[in-house]
């Protein structure tokens, strides 16, 4: 990792449903993402955790410009990518990819998985003919699939294999950054470790940076260098993994940590859940992230 961030997100806001009303007033709608800022270094994994509706998936989508932010800037390798036209964005699209939660919905049922994995190379004209074939086969091997599967259709694959296909497509253009949006949540338990290991291996091999969006904190602890905890569209705490899991400061982070079930009866039976009172400790307007230790920020 070096010091220049690969990705900088500054004061990102995404509001839904806001519009001016008949009588000249304004309705502000719902802020899914509310003043979110963070950076990701090359080769780094940032975990983004929070409950459903906290804005973590929206953050991932907005920073990739899959949806336009309401305000705020995203810089990729120092260049602003917010507010660019589709054609201006195209070179950046090669560098930034996404893997979705549902490997079934993400695949095109009428396209062979080989064509699906090769499609980005067609769109971006990076390879053609036999070169593209070879590259596709190489991608299949890289994600642990037999290249002979290239001519098959998605319904012939299990969930874990489908997620491998999605990952192969995501790395087809040699990106430097991937948003992984709950990539193991929909998979069978006995398959999850396979996909987690694959993400790790690809990071080691290709130097990828990840934004790992998840609600499974034990996996986040295992995978991520740093973790940001979101609540109601805001980051309430951000710190290196050890600090989040060893020295959590925000009441919500503490509640979250004591709520994860641990596969150990002795621990589970003696644990007390720390309840969280949203009224009392929820994010309030005017609060900002304050530094409490090196790289450790808490919303206060």
């Amino acid at each position: 990792m070096n010091d220049t961030p690969l990705l900088s997100v500054r004061n990102l806001v995404k509001r839904y449903g806001g519009s001016s009303t008949w009588f000249g007033g304004n309705s502000f709608g719902v802020s899914a993402v509310d003043d979110v800022s963070f950076e990701i270094a090359p080769g780094e994994t940032l975990g983004l955790v929070g409950e459903s509706g906290s804005g973590k998936s929206t953050t991932g989508r907005v920073l990739l410009q899959l949806e336009a932010p309401t305000s705020g800037t995203v810089l990729f390798k120092g260049q602003t990518i917010t507010g660019l036209s589709a054609s201006e964005l195209k070179p950046f699209r090669r560098e930034m990819q996404i893997v979705f939660q549902d490997p079934y919905a993400a695949l095109n049922p009428r396209m062979t998985v080989g064509a699906f994995v090769a499609e980005p190379m067609v769109v971006h004209k990076t390879a053609s003919g036999s070169e593209r074939q070879d590259r596709t086969a190489e991608l299949f091997r890289k994600v642990g699939l037999d290249p002979s599967f290239m001519t098959r259709y998605p319904h012939e694959f299990s969930g874990g294999q489908r997620q491998r296909v999605n990952i192969a497509r995501a790395i087809a253009l040699n990106p430097s950054f991937i948003v992984a949006d709950e990539p193991i949540t929909a998979l069978d338990v006995s398959i999850q470790a396979q996909i987690v290991n694959l993400f790790q291996d690809l990071q080691d091999e290709l130097g990828l940076a990840y934004l790992f969006v998840a609600h499974d904190l034990s996996m986040v602890r295992y995978l991520c260098h740093r973790v940001a905890v979101m609540l109601r569209g805001r980051i309430v705490e951000m710190a290196p993994s050890e600090a989040i899991f060893g020295d959590a400061r925000h009441p919500y982070t503490k509640a979250l940590l004591t709520a994860i079930p641990v596969p150990d009866p002795d621990i589970e039976r003696n644990r007390r859940h720390v309840p969280f009172d949203l009224e009392m400790h929820g994010p309030r307007p005017g609060q900002t992230l304050q530094k409490v230790a090196p790289q450790h920020f808490v919303l206060t």
């Binding site: 874990g160 999850q192 470790a193 987690v196 034990s218 996996m219 602890r221 295992y222 260098h225 596969p263």
Partner: peptide, 24 residues
């Protein structure tokens, strides 16, 4: 295998998770 494949509260390490091979 299931128990081994879950991270047991360890931080990011070089250790790979145990993975059950194959498909359901």
């Amino acid at each position: 295998g299931l128990l081994r494949s879950l991270p047991h509260g360890e931080a990011r390490t070089q250790r790979r998770l145990y993975q059950i091979p194959g498909q359901p």
